[in-house]
Design a binder for these strands. Structure first.
Lengths: 359, 359
DNA sequence: TTGTACGCGTTATCAC
DNA sequence: GTGATAACGCGTACAA
């Protein structure tokens, strides 16, 4: 592997001159430049970033620590991050914690060792330990997607509370009173915010019961479990709110098994849209998060922090969600004659189940 | 940021001794070890990988260069890669080329500069230039997902030809004779292989026409275009083969607009399954690629190559696809009375369209 | 415009 | 079992 010295020798100049040519730093006569460039081409010299970083203290590399890149929401965030990073000439390290604190800390340690210029973190639980590690090593962090209890880092996230509020209001306006939230873990801020926002909608609405709250994980399996639990409540809720995309899918699967139709038997709204690329015929009423923009903004904030340096004041960017009303939220609720309902039940159920065996 | 020397000073030893404690290299008395460990804890020392890499020539970092991590197939591959890398103590750099040769080469250059220990490459077009760059810098490469014209690197991929053959045979056995392949770009090996496999199925079948072949991109938009073209052929094909997941989605969307029902009016099979997490009610008959395993195996092969060193003989791992028969391929084709068909057409079409507005 | 000397933080080599 | 020294490849500071 040729080094800068090899190039210098071949071109008959000093190493520093080669450095100047490569980096465009300092003056070089055009003749010398030509000689150097030719030498570079001839021996196929590629500058060694490692050596450069050792001196410059910059690696032009950032890291994204998230829970699971397989979740289409985070996939899109990650893509936004990568594009923005690439535009800024940065490379991207990526890590999946699966919501585990230990892995989060392990990854952050590895990232700090590698002297990454900055870290984008979707904190697994509290995230405080990880952030502290970064502060100790003077490495900028931007927290993505989730709030922090204490203001110890910049944050870029979507307005979970507002989105859930809108979804709740939709249901309330359609006349739903008995509702349930199928939510994520207690310690995750998005879960808390979505519950709070949804609750608020029904606190505003007159003569509506407060929603029943189920807490689980942001997974399909948990969505199924919570759907089963929610539908076992008597009297049944008339509307459900799935607090993320995976829960929503689990809910749909479970309801199908229970022969409960959406939206005929129960209305359903959810957080997170599924990418158009993955859904042939969109059906769910959702509060869509601007995932790609979140990724981009996160990088922008990180770059800003990287140039500014540490402060005591942190920024918080809260991006609005977009309400997308589709079929799953149903029409206005009206009193149904239980007999006539069961009369048409068999047929419409069959139709529904069969036809749903599409994407 | 404390260095190894700071630790050494504090512990009253030489830097190299600290190094031995940290890396477990060389002998250290338990007393000295204790002193050093305490000093490390006290000042919060974290080894600097950059400096270490400069000497050791290893960065414990690999890179994954793919076309688009947003494609659920590659998302899953990437997750398999990350998990395997993490198990091996490696970090992962990730890059999206969007099938552009220039970006591929740009990224590879950046990766080589950073002295990554190895590269996993999903070549955009030929990929030869990128592979050559890597060879020049003695950096191991494993080509993922796609074949190479020339055997210049290890390859881990799925059996595109075999999977397409199976899908073709399914259709042939159901009595289809007029078929069309909606495929990817000419220079991409998976596209070629899938066309070839599908063709073979109908070459085997007696009295079947060779499939009509459409070439586009691996995108939804292209899927729509090709579906439109294919359905404009007279007489219409009775079955379509979408050569990847995005094309399949585009096809479904376009057929819906054309009021063509699947599988009633045209049968559809496709390559790539959509992750269970993204599809509520699976519908497509597919040849599913073992994406996660591909990711894992790719890392295994790369690790192998990293320890073995360069050779003239390369490995090729071809993983089998899994045939999953669902509703979209339909039942056996029978002669239909065109009149009765149009008679029921209106109603069943409405039902189909309405009910499809699910996921 | 070009070059020399040195240091970034770590580890390999060799000596004690 | 421990340490001094040099070297990894590059860029800053200063000199010519």
């Amino acid at each position: 592997m040729p080094t800068i010295v090899d190039v210098a020798t071949r071109a008959g100049v000093a190493a520093i001159t080669v450095s100047r040519v490569v980096n465009g730093s300092g003056p070089v006569s055009s003749q010398v430049r030509a000689r150097v460039e030719q030498a570079i081409a001839e021996i196929g010299y590629v500058p060694n970033s490692i050596a450069r970083s050792l001196r410059s203290k910059r690696t032009d590399t950032i890291a994204l620590v998230l829970t699971d890149m397989t979740n289409p929401f985070f996939t899109t965030v990650a893509r936004g991050v990568e594009d923005a990073a690439s535009d800024a000439g940065l490379m991207l390290l990526i890590c999946n914690t699966d919501e585990r604190d230990v892995d989060e800390q392990r990854y952050v340690r590895m990232i700090l060792q590698r002297q990454a210029d900055g870290i984008l973190l979707v904190p697994a639980r509290g995230g405080v330990a990880a952030i502290k590690q970064c502060r100790d090593h003077e490495t900028p962090v931007v927290v993505v997607d989730r709030r922090l209890r204490e203001r110890v880092a910049d944050v870029v996230r979507a307005d979970s509370r507002g989105g859930a509020l809108e979804l709740g209001r939709i249901l309330a306006s359609l006349g739903h009173s008995r509702t349930a939230v199928l939510s994520g873990p207690l310690s995750v801020s998005t879960a808390d915010d979505r519950v709070a926002g949804f609750r608020k909608a029904f606190a505003e609405a007159h003569q509506a019961e407060p929603p029943r709250v189920f807490r689980g994980e942001y997974t399909i399996e948990s969505g199924r479990t919570m759907a089963r639990q929610a539908m076992a409540v008597i009297p049944r809720p008339t509307a459900l709110f799935a607090a993320n995309n995976f829960i929503a899918i689990g809910v749909l699967q479970e309801l199908d098994e229970l022969h409960v139709r959406v939206p005929e038997d129960v209305a359903l709204v959810a957080f997170d849209d599924l990418p158009q690329a993955m859904v042939t015929f969109p059906f769910l009423t959702v509060a869509a998060q601007p995932a790609y923009e979140m990724g981009q903004r996160s990088v922008a904030v990180l770059l800003d922090r990287m140039s500014t340096g540490a402060t005591e004041t942190f920024h918080e960017v809260v991006l609005p969600t977009q309400l997308v009303v589709r079929r799953s939220s149903g029409d206005a609720l009206r009193e149904r004659d239980p007999h006539s309902q069961s009369a048409v039940g068999a047929l419409s159920r069959m139709t529904s189940v069969t036809s749903r065996r599409l994407e």
